[in-house]
Simulated scan of single mutants.
Amino acid sequence: MIDFTSALYLGMHHSSQSLEPWAQLSLGVPAALVEPPGADDVAMALAELQGCEQALLMPSTLHLYWDLFGMLSKLPVSLYRDEETYAIARWGVDRAARGGVKVHRFRHHDPQALLAQIKDQSSRNTYPVVVADGFCPACGRPAPIDSYLDIVRRFGGLLVLDDTQSLGILGVMPKRHAPYGKGGGGLLRWGGHYGPDILLGSSLAKGFGVPIAVLSGSQHWVSRFKSESDTRVHCSPPSVAVIQAAAQALEVNRMQGDPLRLQLNKRVRQFRKGLELIGCSSSGGWFPVQTLNGISGNSAVRLHQRLYRRGIQTVLSRSHKSIGARLSFLITARHSATDIDRCIEKLDALINDVDRLTQVSNAPVNLQVFSGLAMD
């Protein structure tokens, strides 16, 4: 089975044999009292990688956003959320709303809509906090960070970005034939954005293959978060094993990350070129999440099933532009040229029969359809 469902874009795996040994998984105390061994070193390395002053490890982005918006709800802020912000950050925003914070939505990747919202809703008693995903895999585009920052700075606000998709993939000095750039520091490094008015919440579960999260930003905001975090008091911190895996991932990234990113881009280009040769196309640009164009709903479901029977595992997704299922392929650096060629060959053999098959059998199919591709 060739797997196109894994979001381990750089193909990092962390076996127990490959990690440094640990004496115990947990200290039995919350992080508010004592940080687990290695946590400070990994956080410092991530802050440097992302171009931020300070960083703090969290067990997941769910913990991170729950605490972040709990903290912000105590401040005189109004929240402005991109309508397609991923669910976990939205849940944090919902917590702030329940605490009485005004929340406004604006159109996806639309700075003018954001500006109009802020002008219409602005108050001298609050400042705006803009919440968005740094990179949208559904449309294959980064958020317009330049414009968002111009607006935020005009009103003395704060920009909160979920950089999960970009961390480990994007970096400095992107070029035409190396669009990911170097270093894997994420969207801020890729676009050259810096400032004390930016906060990043990121999972390492994609590019780095580690189920842990990091909050990165200015010393002021990270220190404040650390002192006001609820889950750092009431929940277990990341385990020592996961922290060891994060340290290993950063070392692999330092030693092999750029060749892995070049390999990943090579496979994405091969996939898109292969689609072109059989008369198809995909959305996603140079990003490793590729979604077939022109095939949706039952057609996408039937093609998903037939590919699976022939050894090709894909993802049924749902974009913000359509309620119907679409077929996505998550490409990683572990895919070989033969994997891509075989996938294109199977698509070529099956795709022309999809509409006919759908017309013959329109019975509903009970398959999981993901509403997004930013799974934590």
Results as ranks from 00 to 15, higher is better:
148 Y>C: 03
151 I>A: 07
134 G>S: 09
137 P>K: 09
124 R>Y: 10
155 F>S: 12
143 A>Y: 03
153 R>Q: 11
136 C>F: 13
141 R>G: 01
122 S>H: 14
164 T>N: 03
133 D>Q: 11
147 S>E: 15
125 N>G: 11
138 A>F: 05
146 D>V: 07
145 I>C: 06
135 F>P: 01
159 L>T: 03
159 L>R: 04
127 Y>V: 10
128 P>M: 01
164 T>S: 12
123 S>N: 04
145 I>Q: 06
130 V>Q: 12
161 L>G: 09
137 P>F: 05
156 G>T: 02
136 C>D: 15
148 Y>E: 04
122 S>N: 05
142 P>N: 07
160 V>M: 13
159 L>M: 11
136 C>S: 15
136 C>G: 09
144 P>I: 14
129 V>L: 01
130 V>W: 13
143 A>F: 07
131 V>Q: 00
120 D>R: 13
125 N>H: 13
152 V>W: 00
135 F>W: 15
141 R>Y: 03
146 D>T: 12
131 V>E: 00
127 Y>Q: 05
138 A>D: 12
121 Q>W: 12
133 D>V: 04
141 R>D: 02
137 P>L: 12
148 Y>N: 05
142 P>H: 14
138 A>Q: 13
134 G>L: 11
156 G>L: 06
122 S>W: 13
164 T>Q: 03
131 V>L: 10
146 D>L: 09
169 I>C: 04
140 G>E: 02
160 V>E: 08
142 P>M: 09
133 D>W: 10
126 T>Q: 07
142 P>L: 00
136 C>Q: 01
147 S>W: 07
136 C>V: 04
159 L>C: 12
132 A>E: 09
135 F>V: 12
144 P>D: 14
160 V>K: 10
133 D>I: 01
148 Y>G: 01
128 P>S: 08
162 D>T: 04
166 S>E: 08
166 S>G: 13
153 R>N: 10
151 I>T: 13
136 C>Y: 06
130 V>I: 14
147 S>M: 09
167 L>S: 05
129 V>I: 07
126 T>K: 05
162 D>S: 15
144 P>F: 11
138 A>S: 14
145 I>E: 06
144 P>C: 11
163 D>G: 07
140 G>I: 02
156 G>Y: 06
150 D>G: 01
160 V>Q: 06
132 A>W: 09
136 C>H: 14
159 L>H: 10
128 P>T: 00
144 P>W: 15
129 V>R: 03
120 D>F: 14
127 Y>T: 09
130 V>K: 05
128 P>D: 05
153 R>A: 06
167 L>R: 08
167 L>H: 11
121 Q>V: 01
123 S>K: 05
146 D>H: 12
138 A>T: 09
156 G>N: 04
165 Q>V: 00
162 D>V: 11
131 V>H: 00
145 I>V: 15
146 D>A: 13
157 G>T: 08
163 D>Q: 09
124 R>D: 12
154 R>D: 03
126 T>L: 04
150 D>L: 05
161 L>F: 10
155 F>L: 13
146 D>I: 08
138 A>I: 03
151 I>Q: 11
131 V>S: 02
126 T>W: 08
141 R>N: 02
130 V>R: 13
